[in-house]
Simulated assay, not measured.
Amino acid sequence: MSSGFYLYGILPAPLAETVRLEGLDKAPVQSQVIDGFNFLYSEAKQEKYLTSRRNLLCHEKVLEQVMNEGFPNLLPLRFGLVVKDWEAVTNNLINPYKEKLEHLFVKLSGQREVSVKVFWNSNSEMQGLLVSNPSLKQKRDMLEGKTLRMEEVIEIGKLIEEGLQLRKEEVINTFRNELDILAEEVIENDTMTEEMIYNAAYLIPWDSEANFSEKVEAIDQKFGDRLRIRYNNFTAPYTFAQLE
């Protein structure tokens, strides 16, 4: 029994009938035209979908397959969006946001979203800091084995923290200086773990990805083993398709 429609995204044109995609609950993916907007959907078998790895991957796979079918500038919708009927889509999405949706299609035309996440090992960086700063290392070594006053603990901790921050800024500024000029728009997101030091999304011309990738590779080689870089060159443009 259907619980309505599960929505994946909005296309600038209808999905070809020859395209065969499998969505959540193995339901066939289709497109529905409403007021000029083409909604990618499958029949929902549940009123609410669990945010599981399997379901999330299925949602993303549908979007990626559609992008490969010639719709790179689709507008992705958040995971778990189930509507009872198409009237709800008209009332809650199209009527209040029609102009913004049209603007997003123009903005994303010929563009793609790529992302860069940068990780380091804070313990290794601290050792590198001490090696590159003999006076700081000497000061820290002189305090080892001693009973320290609180102000001494605070002082050495502050010096190390400031040194690590400078090293972090050196890395981040390298990415900004090398990559920002290649992008139409850049959004820096919050880091998600203690070891992640940079997290950014870039909106770049679709055919310039190879050059962008080479720049990321060059930065990776520059810093060597200090960094782990996670580069995603093919993803639905969630970051740059925000309505608000």
Score class of each variant (00 low, 15 high):
residue 94 I to G: 05
residue 104 L to R: 09
residue 108 L to F: 07
residue 113 E to Q: 14
residue 147 T to H: 12
residue 125 E to M: 14
residue 118 V to N: 01
residue 105 F to A: 04
residue 52 S to V: 02
residue 49 Y to G: 00
residue 124 S to W: 12
residue 56 L to P: 00
residue 157 G to P: 01
residue 122 S to P: 10
residue 87 E to H: 12
residue 142 M to S: 15
residue 130 L to T: 01
residue 149 R to Y: 07
residue 130 L to K: 03
residue 115 S to R: 07
residue 137 K to N: 12
residue 115 S to I: 05
residue 107 K to C: 04
residue 76 P to V: 05
residue 82 V to H: 06
residue 93 L to S: 03
residue 71 F to G: 03
residue 116 V to W: 00
residue 132 S to C: 09
residue 136 L to I: 05
residue 48 K to Q: 13
residue 65 Q to W: 03
residue 154 I to M: 11
residue 90 T to W: 07
residue 48 K to F: 10
residue 130 L to S: 02
residue 106 V to F: 11
residue 98 K to Y: 06
residue 142 M to R: 15
residue 43 E to L: 14
residue 71 F to T: 02
residue 42 S to Y: 01
residue 134 P to V: 06
residue 64 E to S: 12
residue 102 E to L: 14
residue 132 S to W: 00
residue 111 Q to D: 06
residue 45 K to W: 06
residue 108 L to D: 03
residue 110 G to R: 04
residue 63 L to D: 02
residue 93 L to W: 07
residue 156 I to L: 09
residue 121 N to H: 10
residue 151 E to H: 13
residue 90 T to V: 13
residue 156 I to S: 00
residue 103 H to V: 10
residue 142 M to H: 12
residue 146 K to R: 14
residue 131 V to M: 10
residue 109 S to L: 12
residue 143 L to Y: 01
residue 74 L to R: 05
residue 114 V to Y: 00
residue 98 K to Q: 15
residue 101 L to M: 12
residue 127 Q to P: 00
residue 131 V to L: 14
residue 69 E to A: 14
residue 47 E to I: 09
residue 94 I to S: 06
residue 95 N to C: 09
residue 72 P to Q: 04
residue 147 T to V: 15
residue 87 E to V: 13
residue 73 N to G: 04
residue 146 K to E: 11
residue 46 Q to F: 09
residue 129 L to G: 03
residue 148 L to Q: 04
residue 63 L to V: 06
residue 81 L to W: 12
residue 55 N to A: 04
residue 125 E to T: 07
residue 142 M to A: 15
residue 48 K to E: 14
residue 140 R to W: 08
residue 116 V to A: 02
residue 120 W to P: 00
residue 100 K to Q: 13
residue 96 P to I: 06
residue 124 S to H: 14
residue 102 E to Q: 15
residue 78 R to T: 08
residue 80 G to Y: 08
residue 56 L to H: 05
residue 100 K to R: 15
residue 111 Q to S: 10
residue 48 K to S: 11
residue 75 L to W: 02
residue 107 K to P: 00
residue 129 L to K: 06
residue 41 Y to H: 10
residue 150 M to E: 15
residue 72 P to N: 08
residue 77 L to Y: 07
residue 67 M to Y: 04
residue 143 L to S: 02
residue 76 P to C: 05
residue 88 A to G: 06
residue 53 R to A: 14
residue 117 K to L: 09
residue 68 N to S: 13
residue 70 G to W: 04
residue 80 G to T: 06
residue 158 K to G: 00
residue 144 E to R: 15
residue 159 L to C: 04
residue 143 L to R: 07
residue 120 W to R: 09
residue 100 K to I: 08
